[in-house]
Simulated scan of single mutants.
Amino acid sequence: MRVSAQREKVRFVSGGVECAAWHYPGANGACVIMGAGGAVTKEPGTDPFAERLNDAGFAVLAFDYRRLGESGGRPRQIVRIGEQLADWEAAITFAATLPGVAPDRIAIWGFSLSGGHVLRVAADDPRVAAAIAQTPLADGPDATRKAGRHQRPSAMLRFTGRGLLDALGGLLGRPPLLVPLAGEPGTVAMLTTPDGLDGDRALNPGNRYPDWQQVIAARSALRIPFYRPGRHAPRARCPLLVVVCDQDQTAPPGPAIRAAERAPRGELVRLPGGHYAPFLEAHEQAVEAELSFLRRHLIDRAAAEEPAADVTDSAPRRRGQG
């Protein structure tokens, strides 16, 4: 995979914390803000798609949430939904100030947990001109219930206990208790679904990103099972593309499909494969669908809305003509 020689490291402030991002300058006036899923950082979580979008002329702003990657914030490796939603709002504000970016042509892109955030932000922020939710976590209770089929009850109890202990330790100022992002059934890990184990192969082939810490604070898992961003889809007024994978066991496709159907301007693309298929065998299909969506709603729409040239000025006006 080629890494753009022209991308530059930038920073913006969210909640008093600096968030780090890659800015890929574009050529068509549109900008796509990208956030990775869960505790995934910007490079493994966005590079394969950011490069393709940028090659097509789009500016890209791919950022790390606070407490993760190169962004500030302590304690580390903690995922808080409210904070991450605030980071999206700050990223949109910052993107509008980037050179060559038209503030009315800003799109947002996220997958997994961030795909769920996209559903919420698209509903809440009128500045969003288009949104792409790729294999989104649209309904936490549904995903948690189905993921439980791939975990042993004793391990689920140990994981919950570790999360509660970590939350208590946080109140006392203790460092986070960390768990792996993925593991085999029976281990204490964030994901134990069969396709959840594809994460390292999909996002970090050949250990391309050795600095990515594939761990998360156990307390982070306590709120995600109650997160239901798909319920906000009917309020999204911008074009919304939802990309689902039919065999997804980590973010089951049903709630995401219903979110796309309920969104006033929703579009749905269904791909074969599991949760990480858009990074693996279905990558070309996902990229082409997303590029087509962005071109239609950010480029073609903008061209159609440009005022027609006034051709009467070059001709002599007759008396009585306005």
Rank of each mutant, 00 (worst) to 15 (best):
M1L: 12
E8Y: 01
G15W: 04
G15Y: 12
E18A: 15
H23Q: 11
P25Q: 03
G26F: 05
N28R: 11
N28Q: 06
M34A: 10
M34L: 08
V40I: 15
T46G: 03
A50I: 01
A56Y: 00
V60G: 03
L61C: 04
L61P: 12
G72V: 00
G73Y: 05
V79W: 03
R80G: 10
Q84P: 07
D87A: 07
A95K: 12
L98F: 01
L98R: 13
P99V: 02
P103M: 09
D104V: 06
I108R: 03
G110K: 05
F111A: 14
S114V: 05
G115P: 09
D125P: 07
D125L: 01
A129P: 05
I132E: 02
R145W: 13
G148E: 12
Q151K: 02
P153D: 14
S154Y: 06
L157P: 01
L164P: 00
L168G: 03
L177Q: 15
P185D: 11
V188C: 08
V188A: 10
A189L: 03
T193H: 09
D195V: 12
D195Y: 12
L197Y: 05
D198K: 11
L203F: 09
L203Y: 11
P205V: 09
W212N: 07
Q214N: 11
A221K: 00
I224L: 14
I224D: 02
P229N: 06
P229F: 09
R231Y: 07
A233M: 09
L240R: 01
L240N: 05
V242H: 00
V242A: 04
V244R: 01
C245P: 07
C245L: 02
A251N: 13
G254A: 15
A256Y: 02
A256N: 01
A259H: 11
A260Q: 08
A260E: 04
R262S: 10
P264I: 10
P272E: 12
G274F: 09
Y276D: 02
Y276M: 14
P278T: 08
Q285W: 08
S292M: 01
R295S: 00
H297S: 10
I299Q: 13
I299V: 15
A302T: 06
A303E: 15
P316R: 10
R319I: 12
R319M: 04
G320D: 01
